[in-house]
Design a protein around this nucleic acid. Structure first.
Lengths: 285, 285
DNA sequence: CGGGTGTCATACCGCCAAGGTATCGCCCGT
DNA sequence: ACGGGCGATACCTTGGCGGTATGACACCCG
């Protein structure tokens, strides 16, 4: 045995993560585009190499051991790091420097146009591509698909990212115009008890689909199937049949600009500086 | 061409990192334990896959392109993440929970004994293994060889780590007892101009060896071959033939406890809490 | 209770690609 | 002009990855 072998191929990690997420060899194999037997063998070999049982499988069901849960978490992070390395290398090679910013539609508190204009006016500014994505903007920064993202703390996880706070916002409940609470000047969270979930995009109401786009959520609200508690800045973009009512005791939300904490790019640094300045200026009109 | 292939095997990354660090295919191949031709081919293939030139090699010399520098940095991080995943998985499998703490001999400001005692008294405390290492305690935390480390900011790089500040210290110059400055009550950095390097462990004086152990450095100081500027807490552990003189304008050093920022371990959290408390208590005696 | 079905493991095979050896091509120092 | 050093190329061998077929076992059903 050679226990000093402290590495594993990304292929093996990918395979394990697929099985660990699916908890089903057949489905995982299909997702990976290979047949099931090689997958079984690969997992066995991985377990032998690590000297650790990763999955408890009786003939009916597959579940993660403690070691397996560790490898799922850590393996996902490691794979993201590898993808990030590849993507950033490709970007560095194509000599057309640019920035990719991940934002959520309607989630920029209307700061984005001004930030982009101010940055574009900066000497040495580089083209900025905006990528809209509601659910995985943090992951996009971590794995190199984006150079920076607008995120909402503490709703979204910021581990592994450097951040600049742009704006602290209170929250409002979005309600159909005809709702029993729609006329109130303000609410407390307790007033919303018993209202249907989800409260925000990304939350997964049981048995329902994943809300991937805020328009879907707003539609659900309009139908009375959901109540959303969101940063107050979206009040400007509400559909005509919805109203936003301040929720006094909802925790305030912070709009942050996040980027990989080891980023070394001159352009990114300038963009961050500009964004912070614009936000500061907007803070005291 | 299949540009959607966003991953790379760890083997390829390891190979590239070796070449990028050595800037020499032959040496890199020897270090990797393979022959040179397969290594050349592997790098070429990697470049083809990424669609990017990584190394500028004329027949005499090898140097990194910009993309190559990116891949070196990012690849090292990704490989550390993979190693960390493997090690943490192995640890999680062997069901004997414990903590590994990386410290530098003499670099704990004498806080360690008290921290260990206080933690051991905590309910649910777990055995703590101390690993002494002067040069790569940060890397040990990042790649999973240690759960936490005592580091000195800003001397050591903290990116990617969560930290708790334990102690802010001013610095002293370590001098031979007979040195012309040894009698002074205090110094400024300017007084040390012209003194021989290195100033601290890990610094590499030109043409000399790497100082891997503080005893070596102290020996050099005693021989008049070096001057060290170090946190004042080491004054208690100086050899009889050395003295420490405060350097008034040296930037203060902060002793921090650092751990992987995505750590989820209950034991680690308790240890950090205890350490912070001990340090706070020690701060106001 | 016996056949059917779903699931993971095993057996066996073919082939690609990683690694080895030998050699080339090129630049350099002398 | 020549030998030495270095990376690239040519060619071969083989380990291991992936595929198909099948086994072993548990559960469901009529």
């Amino acid at each position: 045995m050679t226990p000093g072998d402290d590495t594993v191929e990304t292929r093996e990690l990918t395979y394990f993560v697929a099985v660990a997420e699916e908890l089903h060899f057949g489905r995982a194999a299909r997702r990976l585009g290979i047949a099931q037997p090689p997958l079984s063998r690969a997992i066995q070999q991985l377990e032998r190499r690590l000297g650790v049982r990763l999955l408890d499988r009786d003939h009916r069901t597959v579940e993660l051991t403690e070691a397996g849960e560790t490898l799922l978490r850590e393996g996902q992070a490691a794979l993201a790091a590898v993808s990030a390395a590849v993507r950033r290398t490709r970007r560095a090679g194509r000599h057309a420097p640019s920035l990719v910013l991940a934002a959520k539609p309607g989630g920029d508190a209307d700061l984005l146009p001004e930030i982009l204009a101010a940055y574009a006016a900066t000497p040495g500014a580089v083209p900025v591509d905006i990528v809209f994505n509601a659910l995985e903007r943090g992951a996009m920064v971590r794995d190199g698909r984006a150079d920076a993202a607008l995120l909402h703390a503490p709703r979204e996880d910021l581990t592994g990212l450097a951040v600049e706070e742009l704006l602290v916002e209170s929250q409002v409940a979005v309600l159909p115009r005809g709702h029993r609470l729609a006329g109130r000047a303000e609410l407390s969270m307790a007033d919303l008890d018993g209202e249907p979930l989800p409260r925000w995009p990304g939350a997964v109401p049981e048995g329902s689909f994943r809300i991937a786009e805020s328009g879907q959520l707003m539609h659900l609200v309009a139908l009375g199937r959901a109540v959303a508690v969101v940063p107050q800045s979206i009040r400007g973009n509400l559909r005509h049949d919805l109203v936003g009512v301040p929720v006094t005791d909802a925790p305030p939300t912070t709009l942050v600009l996040a980027w990989p904490q080891d980023a070394r790019s001159r352009a990114l640094a300038a963009f961050v500086r500009t964004a912070a300045e614009v936000a500061r200026r907007a803070g005291r009109p």
